[in-house]
Nucleic acid binder design. Sequence first.
DNA 1: AACCTGACTTCGG
DNA 2: TCCGAAGCCAGGT
Length: 106
Amino acid sequence: MTEFTEKIIWYIQNIPRGKVLTYGGVAALAGNPGAARQVSWVLRSYTEKLSLPWFRVINSTGGISIKNIQGYTLQKTLLEKDGIVFNEKEKVDLKAYMWDGTPSSP
DNA sequence: AACCTGACTTCGG
DNA sequence: TCCGAAGCCAGGT
């Protein structure tokens, strides 16, 4: 695994409760803005092994990308448990919830 | 080495 | 505003 991939994992693990990050956002923080798809690959490959907070990663429109209805519902439920609110279009306010990458932001 | 895959993103019609 | 097409990157076969 490359250093880039390790950074992706690090950022995902450090997303604070109540915050989210987009796939492209994680890739950008990890140093490669164009590698959003690699982030999805990491989630699919390492979520179970490393117990990653996978549900805090959403797409650039503020919505959930999981196709499977059960996975979609699970992710939405977990995010709401974090205090994140979805609007009538099933989207969250990225300007309010997007994590800036700072480990401690109280 | 070539080709395929994916829980993505962006741009043009 | 909405949808399809093309672009993107690393890992797996």
